[in-house]
């Protein structure tokens, strides 16, 4: 168990997104565990840059050949940037989920919902228990 990576500096949601904070800019992607569960990712789709989202909203979707997963943001704000390169190379999410496989950056209006998320250790044991 626990063969997946879980960088210590990130926050994690139960729906398997990770959140990195830089000022009020929050970068979101899916975890190594999630990409492994999904298997070969063949398609990603995100809401447009400029859209505003509420905490708990879906900002997009990832698809493998056998599953489709909705992506959720824990913070509200405006989508500042979308990783367009994934549209042509969705496999990047499998290869480098915490790096080149990032998905969207949200300019957050309020960072406090992040406090309710898991840290790396908690997320690891959460995944172990599934």
């Amino acid at each position: 168990m626990g063969e997946w990576k879980t960088p210590a500096e990130l926050k994690y949601a139960e729906t398997d997104e990770w959140f990195a904070v830089d000022g009020n800019m929050v970068t979101i992607g899916i975890t190594d565990y999630a990409q492994d569960q999904l298997n070969d990712i063949v398609y990603v789709e995100f809401r447009d840059a400029g859209d505003t989202v509420d905490a708990g909203d879906s900002f997009g979707e990832v698809e493998s050949v056998k599953a489709a997963s909705e992506l959720y943001t824990a913070v509200a704000g405006e989508i500042a940037e979308v990783n367009m390169s994934l549209e042509d190379a969705p496999e990047t999410v499998n290869a480098d989920p915490f790096g080149a496989g990032w998905m969207v950056k949200i300019s957050a209006s309020d960072l406090s919902p992040l406090d309710g998320l898991m840290d790396a250790a908690a997320y690891d044991s959460y995944c172990d228990s599934r």
Binding site: D40, V42, Y43, E63, V65, P90
Partner: peptide
Amino acid sequence: TAPVRRLDEVRAAK
């Protein structure tokens, strides 16, 4: 023994 072997579904979807 089937007409084809297992298929590459990832290729089909991509």
